[in-house]
């Protein structure tokens, strides 16, 4: 890949990424959103991040797609630990340990 070609590619993605993040903030900021839209927006966070977790563990682009038992164990332990202690450090550490243990056992 040539330098010019890859610079162009990165530039397009950079501008597109900024616009995707800025669009609604700059367009909608002058007025209030309808109440129905505001209520629907409550669900954007949990829905998008849950969908993101799925694409992280079951990456369609990867050769070894699908979810392993170790990954499932990590996710389950992370969810439980965060529900109980609300600490993201504990969530990460416990999830990784569960992942390693189950990977060794299976």
């Amino acid at each position: 890949m040539s330098v010019a070609e890859s610079v162009l590619l990165v530039a397009i993605v950079a501008v597109g990424t900024y616009l995707s993040r800025a669009g609604m903030i700059l367009l909608l900021s002058g007025r209030d959103l309808p109440d129905r839209v505001l209520r629907a927006l409550r669900y954007v966070g949990p829905a998008v991040l849950a969908a993101l977790v799925v694409t992280f563990v079951a990456d369609p682009e990867e050769a070894n797609r699908g979810v392993s038992a170790a990954e499932l164990a990590g996710l389950a332990v992370s969810a439980s630990v965060h529900a109980r202690w609300k600490s993201l450090v504990a969530t990460l550490v416990a999830g990784m340990i569960a992942f390693w243990v189950v990977r060794e056992l299976v």
Partner: peptide, 8 residues
């Protein structure tokens, strides 16, 4: 994925 699970 583990961290985003916690955030969810």
């Amino acid at each position: 994925a583990l961290m985003f699970t916690g955030i969810v």
